[in-house]
Design a protein around this nucleic acid. Structure first.
Length: 483
RNA sequence: GGCGCUAUCGUCUAAGGGUUAGGACGGAGCCCUCUCAAGGCUCAAAUACGGGUUCGAAUCCCGUUAGCGCUACCA
């Protein structure tokens, strides 16, 4: 009987929610939800100097926007006693020692060893317990270092759920710090103590921690606890192959960018999932429920994934397409409701029910909500923004034809029922009567009513706009074409 | 420098000894059509390089190259 998995996402609050972090959260979340396990959010705020409340808030905001939740929450800084106690336990077991080398000298000595890797300072590693205690009692500052097994050297290994069997010689692992000279635990110490204490069963995190894992295995051993299972995720990288960084790549790495760009959270989650994971069939557009149903480590690949943005366009084209697919699949009622804040942002106040009428006309003409204002303006703006009178002139026609068509349209529309079928029938008949092609009839009307040639289908649009507004705009177009 | 990881169309990826190396985005073209979209169809586009193993290698092994990561009293 295996117990339910317990997984955690452990961000350090030093900036906004990074898309790579969001993806790590999602993969943890998927694993937990797939297996009926527990999702834990742990704020790794042991680096007091760099943590900010703003950052923490933006992480929460980002996760909430993505529609993600968690079952337990901890703050690492509130668990310092635990970390220190565990570090001391390791020390008492003889798996760690005090290093009294002043911080300034340490770097120098590490460099002095030349090209080869700094492993330890034998002088400190071999210090007798008596002397160590004496100097500590005298108040001399020290860092507590893990005593990596050296004689004999041995292999440290673990089985990664994604990368397979991993092993590394202790000859290549330095005596890393557990406690800083100010008494605070390092990341390695705090993280392992918490993972052990919280009963984390699967540590799912970025591949940048793959080599750190050997140290963590050593810590778990020294703590006398069974290590969690590990699953490392390929990293998200920039088109030039470099790691995505806030400093270098700016807004591209922030989840809020996609929210503000009018993405649907479920679409962005879908996009993130497809970076480094695939369902093994040809599905692309998937709901998070569908993904949860089949998520597993087998589907995760091992090479880093490029987020395909450019200087001209910070949005990955595939993310955009995926968003459009989710958008097109929305029920119109849902779409209409989601449009409200975007209408408000554009300064428009839709009539009750108006968005519901408009939604189906523009649904397949938006990639994101950011397109809404440009696509739907003529439904709300009166009078229309100025447009070039030349736009009113039909294909293979002249200004005279424009005037003729518009005049005839005006007469026709003054007495036609404003429904799709009636409008189409009447306008086609009108075109035939004055001897122009249907397109030569429709285009000037479209421009008169929408202010441009590119717009939703004409009859639906007219039906929504209504007779009064349509006739008023036709009048204005006539003035324009005659002047 | 040391150690670790990775390498399939421009990008995301499938194929894990036998396929014309598949799909998707993006690009090009055609169809549909009242414009624009959406949709349908077609085309161009990849196994980093070199050695093995094997009847047969994208796939297994070795090397090279490249990229990434770790190498802090950051996380």
């Amino acid at each position: 009987m295996s117990s339910m998995p317990r997984v955690r996402f452990a961000p350090s609050p030093t900036g906004y929610l990074h898309i790579g972090s969001a993806r790590t959260f999602i993969f943890n979340w998927l694993y937990a939800r797939r297996h009926g396990g527990t999702m834990i959010l742990r704020i790794d705020d042991t680096d007091a100097g760099r943590n900010t409340q703003d950052s923490e808030d933006s992480i929460f905001d980002g996760l909430r926007w993505l529609g993600l939740d968690w079952d337990e929450q901890y703050r690492q800084s509130e668990r310092l006693d635990l970390h220190t106690a565990k570090a001391l336990a390791i020390f008492e077991q003889g798996h760690a020692y005090r290093d009294f080398t002043p911080q300034e000298d340490a770097a120098e000595k590490a460099h002095a060893t030349g090209a080869s890797t700094w492993l330890c300072n034998p002088e400190m590693r071999e210090l007798s317990r008596e002397e160590s205690d004496r100097r500590a009692a005298a108040g001399e500052p020290f860092v507590l270092r893990f005593r990596v097994p050296r004689e004999p050297v041995r292999e440290v290994g673990f089985e990664d759920e994604v990368y397979g069997a991993q092993s590394k010689s202790t000859a290549d692992i330095e005596d890393f710090a557990l406690l800083r000279s100010n008494g605070l635990p390092t990341y390695h110490m705090a993280s392992c103590a918490d993972d052990a204490d919280l009963g984390i069963t699967h540590i799912i995190r970025g591949q940048d921690h793959l080599t750190n894992t050997f140290k963590h295995v050593l810590i778990f051993e020294a703590l006398g606890v069974a290590a969690a299972r590990f699953a490392h995720l390929p990293l998200l990288i920039a088109p030039d192959g470099s790691k995505l960084s806030k400093r270098k790549h700016g807004p591209v790495v922030s989840v809020t960018t996609y929210r503000d760009a009018g993405f649907l959270p479920q679409a962005y989650v879908n996009f993130l999932c497809l970076l480094g994971w695939n369902p093994k069939d040809d599905r692309e557009k998937m709901s998070i429920e569908e993904i949860t149903a089949i998520f597993g480590f087998e589907g995760i690949n091992r090479s880093n994934a490029v987020v395909n943005f450019s200087d001209e366009d910070p949005i990955d084209p595939k993310a955009l397409w995926l968003n459009s697919q989710h958008l097109y699949a929305l029920p119109v009622e849902t779409l209409a409701a989601l449009l409200e804040p975007w209408a408000a942002a554009a300064g428009w106040t839709p009539e009750p029910g108006q968005l519901l009428q408009i939604a189906p006309l523009i649904q397949e003409r938006m990639k994101t909500f950011a397109d809404f204002a440009a696509v739907a303006d003529f439904f709300f703006v009166e009078p229309l923004p100025p447009y070039d009178a030349a736009e009113l002139i039909p294909q293979k026609g002249a200004a005279a034809m424009a005037a003729l068509v518009l005049e005839r349209a005006k007469q026709t529309l003054a007495q036609t029922e404003f429904t799709h079928d009636a409008l189409e029938q009447a306008l086609r008949a009108a075109a035939a009567e004055i001897g122009v092609k249907a397109g030569q009839m429709f285009q000037p009307v479209r421009v008169a009513v929408c202010g441009r040639k590119v717009a939703p289908p004409l009859f639906e649009t007219l039906a929504v706009l209504g007779r009064a507004l349509t006739l008023a705009r036709l009048d204005r177009a006539l003035e324009l074409v005659r002047s």
